[in-house]
Design a protein around this nucleic acid. Structure first.
Length: 356
RNA sequence: GGGCUCGUAGUGUAGCGGUUAACACGCCUCCCUGUCACGGAGGAGAUCGCCGGUUCGAUCCCGGUCGGGCCCG
């Protein structure tokens, strides 16, 4: 359940999201723990960056170790030692990101696991079951996400939006069936996802449709998939007045600092993104002044500054120099990626904290 | 002293009588948005040990020379 506490003339708002695991202040950013871990980081380290909710992935955890295994081991919270809320992505994004190894039908999506070669059918119903088995606190509807292929975009986009809506109804039905006996306070939340690519009319219809259902939150999907910043911002601005203020608004996959700020001022409450951790592991960090720094660059060979003098993250506070972290990257020590990840995560958390 | 073998980018290796000499690693720069991802894309870098010969043309063939390695005395 979401409760708006205050809003700012700039469009940003702060509030509380009540989940069965904890009540969280919004806006917030979720680090991505696809397979149950924020790559290379322990839960305590992630928490220390200010993160309170983690995002895990239905498809990846279904493949390994499997939801039955996770359930038998006490659920994802127990398994991964993260007591806070966990949001699970439905596997819908993999319809897009693994588009070369999947086939969409009305029933669901057949994925071919590139590692084992095994084929798996994920349907809206199955996605609900997996997420409940995992023990997720915020369950995402299974959606159909298109890319931005300019040739097929229009037809495919309409089809994707309509299918996403049909699948949402199936998700809700299955979710209700499976949680019928669960007391309301112990039930996870269910978020629906609006699609529509860069088509405003489709987007409007989709947002309105999703908000008209019984979902607890509205996910904005299908952005940050290759469109330019201008297009994305224009869409966020267009959508802002359409949101139901009593619902929470989750912009899926966005986490580039500028985009996040912009989105918060367009009424967005939740974010997730792989950028802070993936970029971190690849040596790229954000520093004050909206700058990006590549720690692997030779210019840091003898650089005794911390990543960012103004930063309060663990890596900067410990006094690790850019020269040292560069060295770690050069010799392939995972500590480099870890420190940079912690730094980037903290950078995004500070943005959210300021808005709160 | 005799025989054999090797010498090509920072390193390790390909290669072939014929236009810009290949590959891996390393190096440099950029990229990454609901994670197939310690990943991806570009780039710099070699007078092919040296001298001479054969040839229309030599990194490649021949001779010499220098350097490394192995074997026999």
């Amino acid at each position: 359940m979401f409760q708006e506490a205050k809003s700012h003339p700039n469009g940003a708002r702060a509030g509380l999201l009540k989940t069965r695991a904890a009540t969280i202040n919004t806006p917030f950013f979720m680090p991505v723990a696809t397979r149950g871990a924020v790559k290379g980081l322990e839960p305590g380290e992630v928490k220390a960056t200010g993160a309170e909710v983690l995002l895990a992935n239905t498809y990846h955890l279904h493949l390994a170790p499997g939801e039955t295994q996770v359930r038998q081991l006490g659920g994802l919270h127990q398994f991964a030692r993260w007591p806070g809320p966990i949001l699970t992505d439905s596997g819908g994004f993999q319809v897009f990101s693994l588009s070369h190894v999947r086939k969409i039908t009305e029933e669901g999506v057949i994925f071919k696991d590139p590692a084992s070669g095994l084929q798996t059918l994920i349907t809206p119903e199955k996605s609900m079951r997996i997420q409940l088995d995992l023990g997720s606190d915020i369950i995402m509807a299974f959606d159909d996400l298109t890319g931005l292929d300019p040739k097929k975009a229009k037809v495919r986009e309409e089809e994707a939006v309509e299918r996403t809506h049909r699948w949402l109804l199936r998700c809700i039905k299955e979710f209700k069936r499976l949680t019928a006996k669960t007391p309301k306070a112990k039930r996870p939340l269910l978020f629906g996802i609006a699609q529509g690519g860069l088509n405003k009319e489709l987007r409007r219809q989709s947002v309105e449709f999703v908000q008209s259902t019984e979902v607890d939150g509205l996910g904005i999907g299908g952005l940050s998939v290759g469109e330019g910043t201008k297009e994305m911002h224009a869409m966020l601005k267009f959508l802002a007045p359409l949101y139901d203020p009593s619902k929470i608004h989750y912009l899926m996959g966005v986490g580039e600092p500028n985009n996040m700020r912009y989105a918060i001022e367009q009424g967005i409450d939740i974010f997730d993104c792989v950028l802070p951790t993936r970029n971190g592991r690849h040596g790229s960090v954000w520093i004050s002044g909206e700058k990006k720094l590549n720690l692997k660059n030779t210019s840091h060979l003898t650089d005794t500054d911390p990543i960012d003098k103004a930063c309060d993250c663990y890596a900067c506070q410990q006094g690790y120099t850019r020269a040292y972290i560069r060295h770690l990257f050069k010799v392939n020590d995972p500590l480099g990626g870890k420190l940079a990840s912690l730094h980037n995560l903290r950078y995004l958390q500070r943005i959210c904290e300021r808005y709160r």
